[in-house]
């Protein structure tokens, strides 16, 4: 045998060169950083004790986290009622992934009932995933006044719409229908603009697409 060779044919200089080599500088920097953090925390702890308070380290909130706000509308839990949906056979392990039920886009979780779903929406996990801080901004008196004026106006408008006279009711209904048609037209145009050549989204129809007869 003229040549030194490893058991698996590796042509390395030594027996132990397969081991991981450590970047010493990187780890030294990490250690220094950790020491620095510990020092800072120790200082904060000491200051809190001097002020007669208990020091509690809190998890850091991301800089760009936005305030949590109240829901704008009621949770629509009934919009899936009466609809048929195809669910892939292997979809969803437990709550994970999309399957039949209430699906949360941000966290990729599916819940089987509205109570679990709403609990999830209020949970820390969901708030973090949607970039919210879980804290609500305090309202000032001016904001309260503004809100009240808005609600008052809204109620008055609703009252004005409530009429018993047949002529005005027909007129109100016609206006409402016109508004709805306008909204539909706007949506349709939007869709058309999005696609190339203004063809609009073509509807693809497949025979027996998942409808179980």
């Amino acid at each position: 045998m003229s040549e030194r060779k490893g058991a698996y044919g590796a042509k390395s200089a030594s027996d132990t060169s397969f081991r991981k080599t450590w970047d010493r500088e990187e780890y030294a920097a990490k250690a220094a950083e950790r020491d620095q953090k510990a020092k800072e925390e120790g200082k904060a702890r000491h200051e809190a004790a001097a002020a007669g308070k208990k020091y509690i380290r809190r998890a850091s909130t991301p800089e760009d986290a936005k305030d949590t706000e109240a829901r704008k509308a009621r949770l629509n839990v009934a919009d899936q009622v009466g609809k048929t949906q195809l669910v892939a056979a292997g979809a969803g392990q437990g709550k994970r992934g999309k399957s039949a039920g209430f699906y949360c886009d941000a966290c990729d979780l599916t819940f089987k009932d509205n109570l679990q779903f709403v609990e999830h929406l209020n949970s820390r996990q969901h708030l973090v995933a949607t970039g919210e801080s879980g804290e609500v901004r305090r309202a000032t008196l001016d904001e309260v006044k503004e809100r009240f004026e808005y609600l008052k106006r809204k109620r008055e408008e609703e009252k004005a719409r409530e009429t018993v006279d047949l002529g005005t009711r027909i007129q109100v209904a016609a206006e409402q229908a016109e508004r709805e048609r306008e909204e539909k037209r706007r949506k349709r145009n939007e869709k058309r603009r999005k696609t190339k050549d203004g063809k609009g989204v073509e509807e693809i129809k497949v025979e027996n697409d998942g409808i179980i007869c």
């Binding site: 706000e69 829901r71 009621r74 209020n122 609600l151």
Partner: peptide
Amino acid sequence: SYYWKEQCFGLNAATLLDRAV
């Protein structure tokens, strides 16, 4: 209660008016 979880989450003194009315 469901009302608490759904409607009372994240209210402040201004948005509480929405529910109170």
